[in-house]
Write a protein that binds this DNA or RNA. Structure first.
Lengths: 116, 116
DNA sequence: TTGACGCATTCCGTTATGGGAATACGATGG
DNA sequence: CCATCGTATTCCCATAACGGAATGCGTCAA
């Protein structure tokens, strides 16, 4: 049992931001708090879909809710993105180096081809 | 038809790195190139699993292969991580600000509670 | 109280996942 | 040519994703 097929989107921030629409939501929330309906309209998604995505973001702690009468204002809590930034940042030195590696790789290929 | 349930892991780097083991692979590859079997042993995963994950990483361009006789040496190509780093970096200013927002949020709650 | 509004949840269907086991494939060595 | 090693692929399973449609539920206004 529990033959995990794929980690739940709510398992961590990495999974949560794998979905483009959720990234859009987060980006939008940089501008401030939004009620669900407006947010949905802004991003051209159905209200239920917005609610579902917001739920995921809430469960991984990337988003916060505030009750305001009938509405629920969602706001950004970007702290959960920091670990991601740091993890990816650990590869920064390789972004440029990669070019060189690829170059030498390509040259190896050429050379190998000539040796045939 | 084509009722996309969830974006394929091979759809982009965001999805590819959502899987912890694939992140482990990338981290390991910072040390250099590795043949599949060694890599699998290092990370305590089966050879087929390693091959599968490497395939995903290859398809999104985060990894490169080089034939070396019987072996296949996998190497890092971190360039695909840059867009991620930049996207997440777009939230950097909010990591700290979030604290303040959360504080005021908590204070709102306290205040509301006192008003009951 | 009733109605309307804002949002969350549930149900359904299709798709793809990641793990295990078995197997197919290509290159090398004898 | 055959056995073997290193990899990739295939099949099967259980899980859960995301989207749409329908519905539940709490809040506010009349």
């Amino acid at each position: 049992m529990a033959a995990v097929a794929r980690a739940a989107t709510t398992s961590d921030a990495f999974n949560a931001i794998a979905e483009p629409q959720r990234r859009d939501i987060l980006a939008l929330l940089r501008a401030g708090e939004w009620p669900v309906t407006d947010l949905a309209r802004q991003l051209s998604m159905s209200q239920p879909q917005a609610s579902k995505h917001l739920r995921v973001l809430r469960e991984v702690g990337l988003v916060r809710v505030r009750e305001a009468g009938k509405q629920r204002l969602y706001g950004l809590d970007a702290r959960g993105l920091r670990p991601i930034h740091e993890w990816v940042g650990g590869f920064e030195q390789f972004w440029n180096e990669s070019f060189d590696r690829l170059d030498s790789y390509v040259q190896d290929l050429k050379q190998a081809r000539q040796e045939d």
